[in-house]
C-alpha cells in the first residue's frame, strides 16, 4: 500500500515536471483545470464561482503589452456581448511584476478602473495557471464550454492593429459554433503577442 502511494507520487511528480518544463499545456478537447486567483476586488475567485454559464472566455492578458492594449477594447466588448449569453470574460494577468512593474496587482486595479473592466481581472502571481494552460504570450484566449472543456485556443480576430481591418473573427465565430451545438472551426489560431514575463527560475 505504502509502496503504491510512493509510485503514485512519483508519477505525479513526473507529470508535474513534464508539464512545467515541456510546457505542453492544454489542447483543444482537454478539460481545463479550475483555479483560485485573486481578483482586483481583493476576493479570491474560481471559474466555479460564476453561476449559470454556458462557458468561459479565459484570456491571458496584461497592462503593458502593446498587443494586449490593442485588444483591450475588444475584450471589453466581448464581455458586454457574450456575458449575457452565458460566456463571460475572465481575464488573467500572468506577468511577473518584478520584471514588469506595470503589471503589479496595484497597477492592474488602476488599469481596470480606468478602462471600466466589468469582468474579473485576476492576478496569476505564481504563474501556475498560465503554465497549466500552456499560455505563451499576451493576449492568448482559451474558450471553454460549461464543463471547462477547451473548445478554442488562439486569437480574437486577425488584425491586432485595427478591428476595422479584420476579416476573420475567430472568437466570435467559435462562440457562435458552440451556441449552434457545433465544433468551432478553426479551433486553434496563432497570433503575435508579447512573451509572458516569466519569473526567474533560479
Amino acid at each position: 500500500m505504502k509502496k503504491n502511494f510512493v509510485i503514485f507520487l512519483f508519477l505525479g511528480f513526473i507529470g508535474l515536471v513534464f508539464s512545467s518544463f515541456v510546457g505542453e499545456g492544454l489542447n483543444v478537447g482537454d478539460t481545463a483545470p479550475d483555479f483560485k486567483l485573486k481578483n482586483i476586488d481583493g476576493q479570491m475567485m474560481s471559474l466555479s464561482n460564476i453561476d449559470d454559464v454556458n462557458g468561459y472566455i479565459v484570456v491571458f492578458t496584461c497592462n503593458t503589452c502593446p498587443f494586449s492594449v490593442k485588444y483591450e477594447d475588444r475584450i471589453i466588448e466581448a464581455n458586454k456581448k457574450y456575458a449575457p449569453m452565458g460566456y463571460p470574460v475572465v481575464a488573467i494577468n500572468p506577468n511577473d511584476a518584478n520584471r514588469r512593474p506595470g503589471d503589479s496587482f496595484a497597477e492592474m486595479k488602476v488599469r481596470a478602473k480606468d478602462k471600466g473592466f466589468d469582468f474579473p481581472y485576476l492576478h496569476d502571481a505564481t504563474q501556475e495557471v498560465a503554465i497549466a494552460y500552456g499560455a505563451t504570450h499576451t493576449p492568448h484566449v482559451y474558450l471553454l464550454d460549461k464543463d471547462r472543456k477547451v473548445q478554442y485556443i488562439g486569437a480574437i480576430d486577425n488584425n491586432a492593429n485595427d478591428v476595422a481591418d479584420a476579416d476573420e473573427f475567430y472568437l466570435s465565430d467559435a462562440i457562435s459554433a458552440l451556441k449552434a451545438g457545433e465544433k468551432p472551426s478553426p479551433d486553434f489560431t496563432k497570433a503575435l503577442g508579447c512573451t509572458i514575463k516569466w519569473k526567474a527560475t533560479n
Binding site: T136, H137, N158, A160, K190, A191, G193
Partner: peptide, 19 residues
C-alpha cells in the same frame, strides 16, 4: 496582419511571441 496565416511558415514551433 493575418498572423495566423504565416506564423507556421516561419516555424510551427513558434507560438507567436516576440522577440
Amino acid at each position: 496582419m493575418d498572423y495566423n496565416a504565416w506564423i507556421d511558415k516561419v516555424s510551427p514551433a513558434w507560438s507567436g511571441a516576440i522577440p
